[in-house]
Computed example of a mutant assay.
Amino acid sequence: MPTRSQLLYTFLSLLTVVLGLASRRYGGELPGWVVAYAGDALWALLVFWLLGWCQPRQPGRWVASWALLVAFGVEFSQLFHPPWLDTLRHTTLGGLVLGRGFLWSDLLCYTLGVAVGAGLEQLWAGRGKAPGF
């Protein structure tokens, strides 16, 4: 079974971070739906790339499943508001990583983001570049 290139996944992760930050920074110049949803989809895609980087030999199905579990877990954690966690969420990095408030629509965005990563891997797997499903 082919293995994921950690160099490629590092690049994909950095590109995803740049796109996600740009979707926030240039939100006034983008359509409203992009501003509302792209950041969440890109966040989940980043989780997918990072798990693929950490587990280069795991099948894509494994990476996608764990990426969704992590993303959904973080989203559902936003239903809980202990003071220490809210303090962390109100920092810039904490807000970007942990979010601030639960939204059902974020679950759909996360699913879409992971699906994009998994779909790209399936395309690459057909070319012998990444572990298949």
Rank of each mutant, 00 (worst) to 15 (best):
L50N: 03
G73N: 02
Q58L: 10
W84S: 06
V47L: 05
T10K: 12
G52W: 02
D106Y: 02
F102G: 09
V74I: 04
F102P: 07
F72G: 08
G20L: 05
L51A: 02
Y9W: 13
A125C: 05
L68Y: 02
G117N: 03
T3I: 02
A44S: 11
F72K: 05
G113R: 01
G39R: 03
V114Y: 07
W124G: 12
W43K: 15
D86T: 05
G28I: 08
K129Q: 14
L30S: 02
V114T: 10
P131C: 06
D40S: 09
G126L: 05
Y37N: 11
V97P: 14
T10V: 04
T92C: 13
E75C: 03
V35E: 08
L68S: 05
G52Y: 03
L46Q: 08
Y37T: 11
G27K: 08
S5C: 01
L7K: 14
L14Q: 14
W49N: 13
G27A: 09
W104N: 08
G126R: 11
A41V: 04
L107K: 13
A22E: 10
L107D: 09
P83K: 12
L30A: 01
F76Q: 10
T91F: 05
T92H: 08
L123Y: 07
G126F: 05
F133R: 10
A130Q: 11
F133Q: 13
R24E: 13
L19A: 12
C54G: 15
G20T: 03
G132L: 05
V114S: 08
E75Q: 04
L79M: 05
A130H: 07
L98Q: 13
F48M: 00
V114C: 07
R4G: 00
E121F: 02
F80L: 06
L51C: 03
L112F: 10
E121D: 15
G99T: 03
E29N: 15
R25W: 14
L15H: 10
P31W: 00
F80A: 10
G117A: 03
H90W: 10
G39K: 03
T91D: 14
A22V: 13
A44H: 13
G27V: 08
H90R: 14
